[in-house]
Design a protein around this nucleic acid. Structure first.
Length: 607
DNA sequence: AGGCGATGTCATGGC
DNA sequence: GGGCCATGACATCGC
């Protein structure tokens, strides 16, 4: 901080004295004394400007050289890229695929008569490089400077830093000896040694620049290593180090071998550090968690690193907590710090009221509470929830309920002690408790809180009793697994009762939902049946009407036919029979008889 | 303020 | 006998 703020000021002599005093007292100011020395900083500034000017000059030279280089390139019509104009013989001389590409390139340009000679190149570099401006050089060699136009970037590809000894990094004033050290270390790398050996063999043939240019001698290894793939060695630093050039390098010399060693080396580190390993990250580090999640039928996607970490931080207990629970537990939850103490505080379970109590107590609404004894229905709980502090919501009622039903008290957590503890710990709840009966039972705010709390009432209870499982888990586990889970975790009486209640209520809730769903489906089905029956009835009525009319018609036809037949009958004198005296009747076998009506009635009356 | 639907819960019976 | 399920009945909430 001081080094940021102080330079803005022009320190007086007094200030400088103070700084000196502090310095002598070995008080770490976080900056050197130079920082506070204005004249020193002015000098530095001038130097810096000078460097910038020189750099600008260099850039221009480089631009010109690049133009010259491009002129020597040949446009490959197939790939649309520039490739160096290499003699066919040279292309055939390219090393095998496993030889680093740099070597072959170097061979190419050193022997190219049209290109700038290697000596010229080294000279140029020597002019450019010997700037002993240490920081620049150091950063250049290290590739640490992100500046794309830095002259030093020539030497090192951006991927190279891992190869460079780190001690060079922090040095503020590096000189050539330091650089030589760097080269020495660099040369100790076996791959580079191999490349260099091959390259040295090649270089001794074409020129004797090694002897003529000491600076180049020192720099040679790196130059040969990182020389641009292009035929013109004069192409200097920035282009070489730019990613575009590296890309060109690989494209222009596909036969030179697989991807360059540099790019191979450089690409690995980011992959490891940043690359797409985050997905595996979770699986790698949290197999137990995931496995537990699977086993619990509650998949916990490891979406984010932070999420994974968050889960893991809670996971070591191997407790099958779900994210929700973890969040809840971690959000300033008393569980975090407490253990059994909080269990004492919140001996929550209505089991004492419903399941584990005597039959009289099993229905708190109807018996225990109704007759004025100390029983609490859920509504009573909610009353207390809303009137007492949230953290003592259930402590109140459960301590009381445990007092009345002594079956659920663990040895250490006697109800009286719970009450005492609760009272001592939450003395401020007493006024609120007293106000329960004086204030209206429901206010809007209270109702709201109540509804919110109702959303996960059992979860809150579970939290209050530090149940280390999610309610979903408690409810949905098969009974064997559930029992196993209960046996694995040492839960006290109240916790066990609550877990059982949660399971019972949860299952019953689902059952009720299913029941209502079925009921609704039945109602819908019955309504559908009713509609179908109504339609059937209508259809039958219509049919009946049709049949009636048809019957009537047939009767009429029969009557007319009867009359017709009857009218055709004649007696012995040829007279027609009287319809009043005779009638036609048909027997079962189809035979038709003419029956006298009077006779018939007489017969009937006789019979 | 009361009606009504939705929902949770309890009690009970059956499997 | 315990667990689960189905269901009627009741309470509560929100509209």
């Amino acid at each position: 901080m001081m080094e940021i703020e102080l330079p803005k000021l022009t320190p007086s002599q007094q200030d400088m004295d103070m700084i000196d005093i502090l310095w002598k007292q070995d008080i770490d100011l976080g900056a050197g004394r130079e920082v506070f020395d204005f004249s020193y900083r002015q000098k530095e500034h001038e130097l810096q400007r000078q460097r910038e000017l020189e750099e600008e000059k260099r850039r221009q030279v480089l631009l010109e050289q690049e133009k010259a280089l491009l002129a020597q390139l040949q446009l490959d019509e197939e790939t649309g890229e520039f490739v160096p104009r290499l003699p066919p013989s040279r292309q055939q001389q390219q090393p095998p695929a496993d030889t680093p590409a740099e070597v072959s390139q170097n061979i190419g340009f050193t022997e190219d008569g049209d290109a700038m000679s290697f000596d010229e190149c080294m000279e140029l570099l020597a002019q450019t490089f010997p700037l002993v401006e240490a920081s620049e050089t150091a950063s250049t060699c290290l590739g640490a400077s992100p500046a794309p136009t830095g002259s030093g970037q020539l030497v090192m590809a951006p991927e190279q830093p891992p190869l460079i000894p780190t001690p060079m990094l922090p040095t503020a004033q590096k000189t050539w000896p330091d650089l030589d050290e760097a080269w020495t270390e660099l040369l100790s790398i076996p791959e580079l040694q191999q490349c260099l050996n091959m390259q040295m063999q090649e270089m001794t043939e074409p020129s004797d620049y090694l002897s003529t240019n000491p600076a180049a001698e020192a720099q040679d290894p790196s130059y040969s290593l990182f020389m641009p793939p292009l035929a013109d060695p004069a192409v200097t630093q920035p282009e070489v180090c730019s990613t575009e050039f590296i890309g060109n390098f690989e494209v222009n010399f596909p036969a030179a071998g697989p991807a360059s060693l540099l790019s191979q080396m450089s690409l690995k580190a980011p992959d490891m550090a940043v690359g797409g390993n985050t997905g595996e990250y979770c699986e790698m580090f949290y197999p137990d968690l995931l496995g537990t999640a699977k086993a619990n039928e509650t998949p916990q996607p490891c979406n984010t690193l932070s999420g994974g970490v968050c889960q893991v931080t809670e996971a070591p207990n191997n407790s099958p907590l779900k994210p929700l629970d973890l969040q809840e537990l971690s959000a300033g939850d008393p569980f975090k710090i407490g253990n059994s103490d909080m269990a004492v505080e919140f001996p929550d379970s209505d089991s004492g009221l419903s399941l584990d109590a005597s039959p009289n107590m099993s229905s708190p609404e109807k018996s225990a509470y109704g007759d004025g004894s100390l029983g609490f229905s859920d509504s009573d709980m909610d009353e207390m929830e809303s009137n007492l502090g949230s953290e003592s919501d259930y402590s109140e009622m459960f301590s009381i309920s445990l007092t009345t039903s002594n079956s659920s008290g663990s040895g250490a957590n006697t109800p009286t002690s719970q009450q005492q503890k609760r009272k001592s710990k939450h003395p401020k709840t007493e006024p609120a408790e007293a106000s329960v009966h004086s204030t209206p039972p429901f206010t809007k705010d209270k109702a709201k809180r109540r509804s919110e709390s109702r959303l996960s009432r059992d979860e809150q209870r579970a939290r209050a009793l530090q149940i280390p499982f999610s309610t979903d888990l408690i409810i949905n586990l098969p009974v064997d697994d559930f029992n196993e889970l209960m046996s694995k975790h040492q839960l006290n009486e109240a916790q066990l009762a609550l877990v059982r209640d949660i399971r019972r209520r949860g299952k019953n809730k689902v059952a009720a939902q299913n029941c209502r769903k079925r009921k609704m489906e039945n109602i819908v089905g019955l309504e559908y049946d009713l509609d179908s029956l109504k339609e059937e009835r209508e259809r039958l009525l219509r049919e009946k009407t049709e049949q009636s009319s048809s019957l009537r018609q047939m009767k009429q036809q029969l009557n007319s036919l009867y009359l017709e037949v009857f009218g055709m009958l004649r007696d012995e004198q040829g007279r027609p029979y009287s319809p009043a005296e005779y009638s036609l009747q048909q027997t079962s076998d189809g035979t038709v008889f003419l029956v006298p009506r009077v006779k018939k009635t007489l017969v009937k009356s006789d019979g």
